[in-house]
Design a protein around this nucleic acid. Structure first.
Lengths: 237, 237
DNA sequence: GGAAATCTGTCGGGTACCCGACGGAGACAT
DNA sequence: ATGTCTCCGTCGGGTACCCGACAGATTTCC
């Protein structure tokens, strides 16, 4: 393990130095604009993106009834599933949910790198494993937890990937992510705000009490995060 | 592509002959008894299982509140995710949901085979991709579809893996799988039975009108199945 | 055969969330 | 300041499903 100082993507930071050296010449900085689509459903993928800041949502379902099944920020890479597993495309849409920037790499360059290095391939497959667990937990939370709880989970996952304590999201947008309607989000936010865990302003939510939020999220939060730490490394690196 | 005549597992049937030859000496027939646990949460995995008949549920969540996130029958292999991706264990429980039999293989033998053959590795990774899509669709269905619809989806997935038109399940068990309580299942079954799509007896459900069931399932059913056909092959082989 | 266990149908009260709608309130431009 | 736009709070009626409970039906055991 080694650390690449100027890079903020945790997956790249946890690369062995030789693997990072393999990727580095092909990495191209790109801007991640709000709502920008990185991967469209069923279209061939030409590049992967390692987010450095901001994050990306994976959503599925027919338009108008979409729902989020995963979230990728600087702990991961966007596009690894179809490229490393199979088929070069996916039925799920991937778009920028919080603006930022990232490092992109062409599919062929990445594939060449993973074929040359087992350790790099293993790292990326490990990330895919954590993403699967995240999706599974989403399925679980959607079924067995109330909106308050799921909202707490989402805020925590969001904060993990943004670093700061203030998130820029509207109730409308949260409703789409959580698959409920806007006015239900308003009520859920008031509930959590009433417990002094967050403070809500127009278009922004500030996390006041993270441990309290984790308690509110209960067992809907934490499993993929723990698995990430076990398989890849902790966030302090 | 080649066909292994005595084998009913579709993944093995879609193997190239050379890949099947690599696996075949290590395959051990095993019985799959109802509710038998194949993989326990967070315990090291020592074998994978290619089901020949019956199927296996993947469930997550704390005991008493578990819910199904995936289903593997003779189209797949149980244990591929942790073994091929990372870590040799998974937080999710895998247990036999419909009795039958299968072919097991030790983890080391399988790993040796996938390291020796790119095509075999690709086949198994493709299956993992379809499993991810299945879990994502489960998350979607749990959030956006009513119980009737999700039940129709489950019956279809079940029938795909069993072949016949009669399934042996109790309402109680369906409730656990679908994450609702038993009496709600009774009502949902009556609803579907009222439309002549199924016939329910004590402990058994018979599918009468599969196209009708597919219509009832709407867009909650079909995506992973289509992806399986695209990536691996159709069910007629 | 009868007893015991299991499974299924039903009911009544309760909660979470949907859905549409409307008015107020913060941000921004002119 | 004035209007415009977006976002937020709230309400009332409706539906899906929870939850516990109980009685009838079917199967299994003896």
């Amino acid at each position: 393990m080694s650390v690449q100082p100027p890079v903020r993507n945790r997956l790249l930071r946890h690369c062995e130095a030789s693997d990072f050296a393999r990727l580095e010449p092909h990495l191209v900085p790109i801007q991640l604009d709000l709502r920008q689509s990185l991967i469209s459903p069923n279209e061939p993928i030409d590049q992967l993106v390692f987010p450095e800041s901001g994050f990306v949502s994976i959503v599925t379902g027919r338009p108008g009834r979409q729902t989020e099944i995963g979230l990728i920020g600087n702990e991961g890479v966007v596009g690894a599933v179809p490229v490393l597993l199979a088929g070069d495309r996916t039925p799920d849409a991937h778009f920028v949910q919080a603006a930022g920037h990232g490092l992109s790499i062409g599919v062929e360059a990445l594939r060449a790198a993973t074929e040359a290095s087992k350790s790099l391939e293993k790292l990326l497959l490990s990330f895919i494993q954590t993403l699967m667990i995240q999706t599974a937990q989403t399925a679980y939370a959607n079924l067995s937890h109330t909106l308050d709880t799921r909202l707490a989970r989402w805020l925590l996952m969001c904060q993990d990937r943004l670093g700061g304590s203030e998130l820029a999201v509207t109730h409308e947008f949260l409703g789409i992510m959580l698959g409920v309607q806007r006015s239900s989000v308003t009520v859920a936010i008031q509930m959590i705000e009433g417990n002094q865990l967050i403070r809500a302003r127009r278009g922004r939510i500030e996390v006041l009490d993270r441990p309290g939020l984790e308690a509110a999220a209960g067992d809907s939060y934490g499993l993929p995060e723990a698995e990430y730490t076990r398989l890849i490394g902790d966030s302090t690196v």
